[in-house]
Computed example of a mutant assay.
Amino acid sequence: MQRPAAERKERTDVNFEPLLTAPPAILFHLAAATTALVILPIQILSSKGTVGHVWRGRAWVAAMVLTAAGSFWIRGTDGSLSWIHGLSAYTLVSLFFGLVAIRRGNLSSHRGWMTGAGIGLVIAFAFTFLPSRILGQLLGG
């Protein structure tokens, strides 16, 4: 037996308007971040030190640099940077030192810096679902 319409929970539809009207800087940032997020679990689960790991790693670092650097073109309504830009700066530093470490053969340091950058990506991703952000609005926030 179906409940009366007043008692049924409304189905929340996805609202694509915030994405369709987003500035190019946000779309660029979203595309780069999505690429990095797709590569990350594959990289984590794959064998380390292989040719595939190296090439996926290069692609991931490129996507991460584009994501982090691109975030600096995304500003608040008053033109200011937010605390999340500090995470972008941390990410760029982590990637730099992770690359320096692997060039020097320091696998432990490389792993630590890259893990830090990956954790930063996941934290930033979680914050994109806040109602004030485009992905949060996309999902009805």
Rank of each mutant, 00 (worst) to 15 (best):
Arg56Lys: 11
Gly136Arg: 03
Leu95Gly: 00
Ala5Tyr: 07
Val100Met: 12
Val38Cys: 13
Ser46Ala: 13
Leu139Arg: 01
Phe97Cys: 04
Gly105Asn: 11
Ala36Leu: 07
Leu66Asn: 07
Ser132Tyr: 05
Gly76Cys: 03
Gly140Ser: 12
Ala32Leu: 02
Phe125Gln: 10
Thr77Cys: 02
Gly105Ala: 06
Asp13Met: 09
Ser46Tyr: 05
Leu99His: 12
Thr67Arg: 01
Leu66Met: 15
Asn15Ser: 12
Ala31Val: 15
Val100Gly: 03
Gly57Thr: 08
Trp60Ala: 12
Pro131Ile: 08
Leu107Gln: 15
Leu45Tyr: 08
Asn15Glu: 12
Ala69Glu: 04
Ala124Glu: 02
Ser108Ile: 06
Ala69Gly: 15
Arg56Ile: 04
Val61Phe: 07
Val61Cys: 12
Thr21Ile: 04
Ile119Asn: 07
Gly116Thr: 05
Leu40Ala: 15
Arg104Ala: 14
Gln137Trp: 09
Ile39Gly: 04
Thr77Asn: 13
Gly105Met: 07
Asp78Val: 06
Leu87Ala: 15
Val65Trp: 02
Ile123Cys: 07
Arg75Gln: 14
Arg104Ser: 11
Val93Cys: 00
Leu92Tyr: 02
Leu99Pro: 01
Ala22Met: 06
Ala32Thr: 07
Gln43Phe: 11
Phe96Pro: 01
Thr12Glu: 13
Ser132Cys: 04
Ala117Phe: 00
Gly52His: 06
Val65Cys: 07
Phe125Val: 07
His110Asn: 05
Phe125Arg: 05
His110Trp: 03
Val93Ser: 00
Leu30Gly: 14
Leu81Val: 09
Lys48Tyr: 07
Lys48Gln: 14
Ser109Lys: 13
Ala69Leu: 14
Arg104Pro: 05
Thr35Val: 12
Thr77Lys: 12
Leu121Asp: 01
Ala124Ile: 06
Val51Glu: 15
Ser108Thr: 15
Ala22Val: 03
Thr115Glu: 06
Ile102Gly: 02
Pro4Val: 10
Leu138Ala: 14
Leu30His: 10
Pro24Glu: 10
Phe125Asn: 13
His85Asn: 08
Ala62Ile: 13
Glu10Gln: 13
Leu37Val: 03
Arg111Asn: 10
Arg8Asn: 11
Leu87Thr: 10
Gly140Leu: 08
Asp78Arg: 11
Phe28Tyr: 15
Pro18Cys: 06
Lys9Val: 11
Thr77Gly: 13
Val61Asn: 12
Gly52Lys: 09
Ile123Arg: 01
Ala22Arg: 00
Thr115Leu: 11
Pro18Gly: 05
Ala5Pro: 09
Ala32Val: 01
Thr21Lys: 14
Gly140Thr: 09
Pro131Trp: 07
Arg56Asp: 05
Arg58Glu: 06
His85Thr: 03
Thr50Gln: 06
Leu92Phe: 02
Ser46Lys: 11
Ala32Lys: 01
Ser132Asp: 11
Pro24Met: 10
Pro4Trp: 05
Ala68Tyr: 00
Phe16Glu: 10
Thr115Asn: 08
Gly136Ala: 10
Tyr90Ser: 04
Arg75His: 10
Leu95Pro: 00
Leu81Ala: 08
Trp60Pro: 01
Ala101Tyr: 02
Ile39Lys: 04
Phe129Arg: 01
Trp73Tyr: 12
Ala33Asn: 09
Ile134Asp: 08
Asn106Cys: 03
Pro18Met: 02
Leu20Ile: 04
Ala6Glu: 15
Ile26Cys: 05
